[in-house]
Design a protein around this nucleic acid. Structure first.
Lengths: 196, 196
DNA sequence: GCGCGTATTGACCACGCGGTCAATACACAG
DNA sequence: CTGTGTATTGACCGCGTGGTCAATACGCGC
């Protein structure tokens, strides 16, 4: 029954939500226009009406995934911690907790990542997003290097920030691979055991 | 021109090699029977002759990827290091080096991983392979826990081994994402800066 | 009540895919 | 030289895909 109106924004959101669900269940390859339409209980023609090309749909979904995954929020409780190093550790812990709770979205994020390897625009957007994420850590690591010099030779603020991001990534991957056997406390204790 | 004979094993290897190259360039989704045949300069019918189903081809490629990626080799130089912790560190460094040099194969490995999320048999095989990889670390971490007790509360040999694998994974991902900006020395120094 | 524009549908198209199969070229035993 | 079995080809089928488009139902200003 054509003609049933719905505000443009609403329909787009509805379709995007359906696309997200399909991508979670079937992966990016399984993200077909028809599957999304079926999930949203719409005709595939309508999906093409709101997103002229499939690429636009995939791109819009990437926007959403990035906006909800790689945004670093520093709560006041952490910001108040005096020592930079402790603050960084607390922040890492927060991010581990946050990402470990959403292994499915993380998996989707990595699928986009793999896709980016063969698709320059996607790669550029993910890369830019990770740069911002790293920059958010950098202010903290800069303070660390400044206040605690001589700790390690050749350790720069950039290097520390890169490691922080990489560390979070590693944990996210681990949580994605084996969500049940991932214990954050064990993990942190073991890291200090090896490198402390 | 039909009839040109080649030993069964040779043809299979030739096709698998072509499949690997296609998978590296186009990803697992892009791994089509026809693309593999074209790469190997054969007809697609022949590919179906040697691998009855596409799934068999994909599975055989996974075998090859696992056999060349998640096998831990401990060289004599490292085995001779007296302190378990130093030995573990050296081993981690070796694995970081090794995996950082092959970001493309790592990417393929992760693609299989993502695929395993939706395909139980694949998941089981990857999981079993990682268990073996972790077990190889475990003998070392067990010694560590035994000889250096009281270092950290609640740190078990299993926990340490899991972290070792996760650590290597994190580095592999980092090297895959940004091969040019990944500096192992910086990385290790930064880890000690944060957790030391 | 009447148009007008927008949202919506489903039929339709071309394409590439995985898979099947009869025909055929070759190696080799006799 | 001939027969037999295996390796190889290319035509073919059915399917699901992304995408287009005419037809149409609806909301709304007049």
């Amino acid at each position: 029954m054509p003609g049933r109106k719905a505000p443009e924004a609403t329909r787009r959101e509805q379709i995007l939500k359906a696309a997200y669900e399909v991508a979670l269940n079937r992966g990016i390859d399984g993200l077909t226009v028809r599957a999304v339409a079926a999930r949203a209980k719409l005709s595939h023609g309508l999906v093409h009406f709101h997103f002229k090309r499939k690429a636009q749909l995939v791109s819009a979904l990437l926007d959403w995934v990035l906006a909800t995954t790689t945004v670093l929020h520093v709560p006041a409780v952490i910001a108040r911690i005096p020592r930079a190093r402790d603050r960084l550790r607390a922040l890492l812990r927060q991010e581990m907790d946050r990402l470990a709770k959403e292994p499915r979205r993380i998996r989707l994020f990595f699928e986009y990542w793999a896709l980016g390897t063969r698709h320059a625009p996607t790669r550029a957007r993910i890369s830019a997003e990770l740069d911002r994420y790293r920059a958010a850590f950098r202010t903290m690591t800069a303070e660390m290097v400044q206040r605690e010099p001589g700790e390690g030779a050749g350790v720069t603020a950039d290097g520390l920030a890169a490691v922080a991001v990489s560390f979070v990534n590693g944990c996210a991957v681990q949580a994605m691979i084996d969500p049940t056997h991932f214990d954050i406390d064990q993990y942190l204790a073991a890291v200090e055991g090896i490198f402390g």
